[in-house]
Amino acid sequence: MEKVYFIGAGPGDPELITVKGQRIIKEADIIIYAGSLVPREVIECHKDGALIYNSATMTLEEVMDITINGIKSGKKVARVHTGDPSIFGAHREQMDILDENNIEYEVIPGVSSFLAAAASLKKEYTLPDVSQTVICTRLSGRTSVPQRESLESLASHQASMAIFLSVQMIDEVVKKLSVYYPEDTPIAVVQRASWKDEKKVIGILKNISELVKKEKINKTAQILVGNFLGNNYSKSKLYDKTFTHEYRKGKEDV
């Protein structure tokens, strides 16, 4: 029996899918892709005769019916998610249904939009003496967020933060972050990171809401906040000539 492949398609740029993910798409008999966020170009490498479905217009039941029937007919199924399916990907519920039906599956990771956003800004989340922690979160919307994970609570750590699915509530985001982050904390918003029409706004907590509204950014954007966006940090020990590790002796040891 064939397998179902959950594929992280990346943040938008068709070249940011993994080699393995692209190979499976080329081989698949059935492709179900999240067309609202995954560009059609990502799956244009499909073979002749492959059946293509856009899950943006489908329910979970419809997706799973096509998937299960496809596998039972001996077809290879590629379920293509945006970014990496493990982050706000809603693929756990699909895997559970496959388990119930004794259908084998594999997950192929992808590049998440929070990574593409940092790449676009040419920033590093984990700067020495600034932050060694990255928090990925969102505000409550149709999907609630546990109270213990409120934005105010997470902001108390002043770690590097990537906020998904929340730019349409930028005023509320700023209000909640301001409980712990100073008003001059650097913050950036990257809309459609890695897409040809990518847009980015860079500011501080005090003025970011105004800048975002001016650019009319109200969906498909990452909000990045933290001092990792600034310029003050300590150099890494990794390449420090005085730092010894198993692959290199420090200068004092030579």
Results as ranks from 00 to 15, higher is better:
115 L>A: 13
180 Y>R: 08
95 M>C: 13
179 V>E: 08
169 M>V: 02
226 G>S: 11
117 A>M: 09
113 S>F: 07
185 T>A: 09
181 Y>W: 07
218 N>R: 15
89 G>F: 09
162 A>I: 03
145 V>H: 00
73 S>L: 14
188 A>I: 10
52 I>V: 13
90 A>H: 09
172 E>P: 06
222 Q>W: 13
162 A>R: 00
47 K>I: 08
96 D>H: 11
10 G>Q: 12
67 T>N: 05
172 E>L: 15
112 S>G: 14
174 V>P: 01
187 I>Y: 00
228 F>S: 02
183 E>W: 00
155 A>T: 03
165 L>P: 07
151 L>R: 12
113 S>D: 03
223 I>Q: 01
165 L>E: 09
157 H>G: 09
25 I>K: 08
253 D>W: 06
7 I>R: 02
237 K>M: 15
71 I>N: 04
138 R>Y: 00
156 S>K: 15
208 I>Y: 07
149 E>C: 08
177 L>Q: 06
245 H>E: 15
200 K>G: 09
155 A>S: 11
15 E>P: 00
3 K>T: 05
86 S>F: 11
83 G>K: 11
77 V>I: 05
212 V>Q: 05
218 N>I: 10
49 G>A: 10
137 T>F: 02
62 E>F: 14
152 E>I: 11
117 A>Y: 09
99 D>F: 12
192 R>I: 06
120 S>E: 13
222 Q>D: 13
131 S>K: 05
243 F>P: 06
124 E>A: 10
45 C>L: 14
151 L>Y: 11
182 P>R: 10
141 G>C: 05
121 L>V: 06
72 K>G: 02
62 E>C: 09
155 A>K: 01
57 T>F: 10
125 Y>E: 03
140 S>D: 09
78 A>G: 04
151 L>H: 11
254 V>N: 15
146 P>M: 02
149 E>T: 08
23 R>E: 10
56 A>H: 03
117 A>G: 08
5 Y>W: 00
44 E>D: 14
99 D>R: 13
56 A>V: 08
42 V>C: 07
188 A>R: 06
167 V>G: 04
165 L>T: 07
71 I>V: 15
158 Q>P: 11
210 E>R: 05
192 R>Q: 14
133 T>E: 09
217 I>N: 14
74 G>Q: 07
117 A>N: 08
28 A>W: 09
241 K>S: 00
197 D>V: 01
52 I>Q: 05
53 Y>T: 06
63 V>E: 12
